[in-house]
């Protein structure tokens, strides 16, 4: 046995790899099936960004709440939302996580603490302040994590929420997923300051920036911030610098990106390749163990797609259901 230099035991390391691979496979499969015309609506893929969701969510339990974004599949999977239900939702089936009412942009599972992907930029931040306030009243140590893109970080709701969380000393972590682009617009242009840490400081919050393609860096920084919030130390901001492998949404021609940019990112900054390398180099994990996980993940996603396609569509009576609890 080789010594494990990492702060996670082998089972957790393999679980991290499995989660990241599941997200990747889920997204790669959607990319293919969307191009075939199988999938309705807008789909925003999380491929390339897996280390961020995974490194953070490993510190959370079902009692901790997250508020996600339009690019929410990775957050869902890492938070434990059922992959079959997610796929069925994206296919608009009645077996979906939201019974086909929400689709890709609105997958939610409150029982897992997943308060929803969101079609409105910046909308998650105030909601998570509420989730954290509720946790504080319950006194159960629950924390709230809100994810926001570099672009959406310019929304008033996000900025106001940082102030509110600080003033109320809420157990909230603001995670900025900085992938360099908001649709086609560069982060460097649209965000007025050089560092998100400056923004956090302005609101009286500690801020940390990590390489979001490095699972271990995310895991470590998030662990510290979440522990602090849990213990009543208040809110903080975590910026993860990461990369987007596909277009803003499926169908985006991406002419605003540099030639060869994506190829180079895939070659040099693929968070899954980087994790696999570190795990196998140190000898903690044998390549065959990862290959087994790869096969299991492929089978899982294949089955999720098969089940989704075979599942029934919602019917007329479902249209009027669940507008109100009572009316």
């Amino acid at each position: 046995m080789t010594d494990n230099p990492y702060p996670l035991d082998k089972a957790d390391l393999l679980q991290a790899y499995r989660t990241m691979r599941t997200i990747r496979e889920f997204e790669e499969r959607l990319h293919i099936d969307f191009a075939k015309g199988d999938i309705p609506g807008f789909v925003h893929l999380y491929a390339g960004e897996e280390a961020c969701a995974t490194g953070i969510m490993m510190h959370l339990n079902d009692n901790d709440r997250i508020a996600s974004t339009h690019r929410g599949h990775g957050h869902c999977i890492a938070k434990g939302v059922d992959v079959h239900e997610m796929m069925a939702e994206i296919y608009g089936r009645s077996t979906g996580a939201c019974r086909g009412k929400g689709g890709s942009m609105h997958i939610a599972d409150l029982s897992k603490g997943m308060m929803g992907a969101n079609g409105i930029l910046g909308a998650g931040a105030p909601l998570i302040c509420g989730a954290a306030l509720a946790a504080k009243f319950r006194g159960d140590g629950g924390v709230g994590i809100t994810f926001v893109g570099d672009g959406a970080s310019n929304q008033g709701t996000f900025l106001e929420s940082m102030n509110l969380a600080a003033v109320w000393n809420l157990p909230v972590v603001f995670v900025v997923e900085n992938n360099g682009y908001a649709e086609s617009t560069a982060m460097e242009w649209a965000v007025s300051c050089d560092s998100y840490i400056d923004r956090a400081t302005g609101f009286g919050l500690p801020g940390v920036t990590v390489d979001g393609t490095d699972f271990f860096a995310v895991h470590e920084a998030a662990g510290e911030i979440i522990r602090r919030a849990r213990e009543g130390g208040g809110p903080a901001l975590l910026e993860c610098n990461m990369v987007r492998f596909y277009g803003h949404f499926e169908g985006d021609a991406q002419t605003y990106r540099a030639k060869g940019e994506v190829e180079s990112l895939r070659a040099n900054r693929d968070c899954i390749k980087l994790l696999a390398q570190r795990l196998t180099e140190t000898g903690i994990v044998a390549p065959a163990e990862l290959e087994t996980i790869d096969r299991e993940v492929n089978a899982l996603i294949e089955d999720a797609v098969r089940c989704a396609k075979a599942a029934p569509l919602p019917v007329a009576a479902d249209l009027l259901k669940d507008v109100y609890v009572a009316y």
Partner: peptide
Amino acid sequence: GEDIVGGTGAPGEDDAWGGV
């Protein structure tokens, strides 16, 4: 508006979107 030109500050083509 948002991305009514597109590609602002980005390394590739200018006027990349012309709106969503």
